[in-house]
Write a protein that binds this DNA or RNA. Structure first.
Lengths: 118, 118
DNA sequence: CTTTCGGTTGAACGGTTGTTCAAATGATAT
DNA sequence: ATATCATTTGAACAACCGTTCAACCGAAAG
C-alpha cells in the first residue's frame, strides 16, 4: 500500500485542540499583528526607528547615518508610515521623521530584556 | 551636466547625525533584535506561539488546529527553537511544545495595545 | 515663472522565505 | 529485533523582500 501523507493529519488530543481553538484570535487580528512585527524584523528599519527615537531626522541625514542611498531609506520609511509607526513634520524643504507613539519603545524594551536573558 | 545621484548623500544636519551616531546600538545587537522580531512577523508562527501559550501542544495537534501539514509546522517550530522561544517535553512518542519564557507574552501585549489604539 | 533639491516612486535584480513533497530518524510499543 | 508512527529533514519552487537605478514630483527659494 502506498504511503500517503495526509495533508491535515490526525488529531491526537482532541480536547486540547478544541480548547485552544476557542481562544485563538480572529484571522484579521493575527494578520495585523504579523504585519506589525514584520516591520521590526529588518535591521535597517530597526536602526531607523532607534535613530528617530533619539532625535527627529530627515531622509538625507538618515541615509548618511546608515550609509545608504536616500532612495533605500525612503522606501523603508514608506513601510513605517503604512504601519503608523512614524509621523512627519516639514521645515522648509526638509521633512523630519519622528516616532508616532511610545508603544514602539516599550515593545523594544521587552524584546531587549528577552534577548539579554538569553 | 549629468545628474549624478551620490550613493551616500550630503549631510544636512551634521550635529544631529553625530549625536545620534553616538547612541546607536552595536551592529550585532540590532542584528539579534531583528532576527527576534522576524520570527513574530509571520502569521503561522504567531498562531503557534499564541496556541502553545494557552496549552502545550504536539506537532500533530498544531497541524490540525492550523489546517497545515505536520512538515510545515515542524519547519516553523525549528525557527522558534533556534530563537529560544519554545522548549519541548517528550511523553511517549509525542513531543509537547511550550513557550520558553514569559517575555513573549509581554511583547505580544504591548503590540496589541499599539494596534488597538490604531 | 524657473530653478533647485529633498524626497518619492516604479521597475528590475538577486536573495530570502514559507510551503510542499518525499524520504529519513529514532524512540516507543509489540 | 521489528514495526509503528510522531517528528524531522532536505530539495525544489513560487512568492515575497530589500536595494539599486533612473526618472519624477513638488514645495520653496531666487
Amino acid at each position: 500500500m502506498p504511503d500517503i501523507q495526509e495533508s491535515v493529519c490526525a488529531v491526537i488530543h482532541k480536547d486540547i485542540v478544541d480548547e485552544v481553538k476557542e481562544s485563538i484570535p480572529r484571522e484579521d487580528e493575527t494578520s495585523r499583528l504579523a504585519s506589525f512585527f514584520k516591520v521590526f524584523g529588518d535591521e535597517t528599519r530597526l536602526k531607523i526607528l532607534w535613530a528617530i527615537d533619539r532625535h527627529e531626522m530627515c531622509v538625507c541625514d538618515l541615509a548618511a547615518l546608515l550609509g545608504m542611498t536616500k532612495s533605500a531609506v525612503s522606501h523603508q520609511l514608506r513601510l513605517l508610515r503604512e504601519e503608523n509607526l512614524v509621523r512627519t513634520r516639514r521645515d522648509g524643504k526638509v521633512i523630519f521623521y519622528q516616532l508616532s507613539d511610545s508603544h514602539v519603545t516599550q515593545v523594544f524594551e521587552k524584546s531587549v530584556e528577552h534577548i539579554e536573558e538569553k
